[in-house]
């Protein structure tokens, strides 16, 4: 089944009636992607599998309320995001972050040039090093910023879909992804990567 067929009104109507085959198709199509995003969000394999189960259980339970105004995938990822936030609040990861505080501009001189210019790096080496540390560095980023980063960079979603999932404006999304990237660069730099 193609991704697009899932969002056809006729298929959505079957979903809303709780048609088992239709629900199973959605599960089979999106489970790998939802699971990957859960793991990229910082959950270990078993935690990720548990949360994905909860996500699909909620999906099945609430499907009657789905109005088909957004894509099925967007709706599913919205559930995933809220479950990750809930799980974060219950663990020590639920630290307080100021997600939308201004991006730090001290990296620039008053005339708008770089105060600490990004160093030229051998991109093959840089990429290898980044792969090694990206997971640790992302652990220091807030859930919301991390999710913005994961949906853009790993799931390669468009801005409007990400905004719908995170329930933010495009401007807010810009701040979230910008801060996530800057924190990643700072964290990598602190480990001597790219310097």
């Amino acid at each position: 089944m193609k991704d697009d067929d899932i969002d056809l009104p006729i298929f959505v109507a079957r979903l809303r009636e709780g048609d088992r085959d239709a629900l199973e198709k959605v599960i089979r199509l999106y489970l790998p992607q939802v699971l990957r995003a859960a793991r990229a969000s910082g959950l270990q394999t078993e935690q990720a599998e548990d949360i994905v189960q909860v996500v699909f259980a909620t999906f099945i339970e609430k499907i009657g309320e789905f109005e088909g105004r957004s894509r099925v995938r967007t709706w599913l990822f919205g559930i995933l995001y809220r479950k990750i936030l809930e799980a974060g609040r219950q663990s020590e990861r639920g630290r307080q972050f100021d997600d939308l505080a201004d991006v730090d501009h001290s990296r620039f001189r008053p005339d708008g040039t770089w105060a600490r210019p990004p160093r030229p790096a051998d991109m093959a080496v840089y990429g290898r090093e980044v792969r090694k540390y990206i997971s640790d560095c992302l652990d220091r980023v807030s859930e919301k910023q991390r999710m913005a980063f994961v949906l853009r960079e790993v799931e390669m979603m468009e801005t409007n879909e990400i905004c719908e999932i995170l329930d933010v404006t495009p401007t807010n999304f810009g701040v979230l992804i910008h801060r996530a990237r800057n924190q990643l660069r700072d964290c990598l730099e602190a480990r001597g990567i790219g310097t």
Partner: peptide, 27 residues
């Protein structure tokens, strides 16, 4: 501007790294 060029290349490399880490570790 080589500094901004380096910045853009770093961001691209970070995105590529994220994809390769999580897409290659499929269940």
């Amino acid at each position: 501007c080589r500094h901004c060029g380096n910045y853009a290349r770093q961001l691209r490399a970070i995105g590529n790294a994220a994809r390769s880490v999580w897409k290659s570790s499929e269940e």
